[in-house]
């Protein structure tokens, strides 16, 4: 094996959603600083399997910071110590030889644990189903350049659209609020002309679903923004709040 870092991992082990779960301690040796955090877990799992033990279950897929699947709570921070970086893009050079690293799953009642470090984030999909779209059937579209969109608006919509749906914002929040995630989608469409027709309905429906899923309320601590790997801005929450109040008023009037 390739490196010279020796570390102690304290990893949350939980057989399934009904199990109480507990920390297990695993020393890992010969870790290269060029490894990613997940590759370090690959090394650990390979060893556990060779020792006849159950490997640690965790979610991951692209390992490029874009699919939003990886989700480890590392030393008290979602996706670990670096800003703007997902777990899969975190490399061991961010740690020191001899470190003890505590690894837990996302913790939120709306994200029940499936096993070990893998959680169920299907609540996010249901929020999108409630309104995170523009209702346009295939074949309905007009020529793409018939709607000029000022570059600044397009860029701002894009910035909101880069959310990867990882759930770190929820894990970071002491109330387990999903406001940053929901507001990013609401903002993307609110900033575009195509999104105007359903603007009010969208925000009302998405927020209602968010509440129904059991996410907590937002008390403006800003932990979500600080931990979001894609730098989704709190200003999206402010925009969503304005839209929400406006939409509620116009619904009451109607």
């Amino acid at each position: 094996m390739s490196g010279n870092m020796n570390l102690t991992l304290k990893v949350w082990r939980q057989k399934n959603k009904d199990d109480r779960g507990k920390f297990e301690t695993y020393p890992v040796q010969h870790i290269s600083p060029d490894m990613s955090f997940l590759e370090m877990f690959d090394v650990l799992n390979e060893r556990l399997i060779n020792e006849g033990k159950d490997p640690v279950a965790f979610d991951h897929d692209c390992r490029e910071g874009i699919c939003g699947m990886c989700s480890m709570f590392i030393n008290g921070r979602p996706h670990g110590p670096l800003q703007g970086v997902t777990t899969c893009q975190l490399h061991m050079r961010s740690f020191k030889n001899g470190d003890t690293i505590v690894v837990e799953p996302w913790r939120a009642s709306a994200f029940p644990v499936i096993k070990d470090l893998a959680v169920d984030r299907s609540a996010f999909d249901r929020i999108i189903s409630a309104g995170g779209f523009i209702s346009v059937n295939t074949g309905n579209a007009q020529d793409a350049n018939s709607i000029p969109i000022p570059k600044d608006d397009a860029d701002a919509a894009f910035a909101a659209a880069t959310c990867i749906g990882c759930g770190a914002c929820v894990a970071a929040c002491k109330n387990a609020s999903a406001m940053l995630f929901v507001s990013a989608k609401v903002s993307q469409f609110a900033l575009l002309p195509q999104g105007q027709a359903e603007r009010q309905e969208r925000v009302l429906n998405m927020v209602a679903q968010m509440d129904a899923e059991g996410f907590g309320s937002c008390t403006n601590t800003g932990a979500c923004e600080a931990e979001c790997p894609k730098g989704i801005s709190l200003s999206n929450i402010a925009r969503m709040n304005r839209d929400y109040i406006g939409a509620q008023l116009s619904v009451q009037k109607a």
């Binding site: 523009i134 346009v136 295939t138 309905n140 579209a141 709607i147 919509a157 469409f189 195509q194």
Partner: peptide
Amino acid sequence: QCVAQGVP
């Protein structure tokens, strides 16, 4: 189609 869906 993608632009109509709001793809930025």
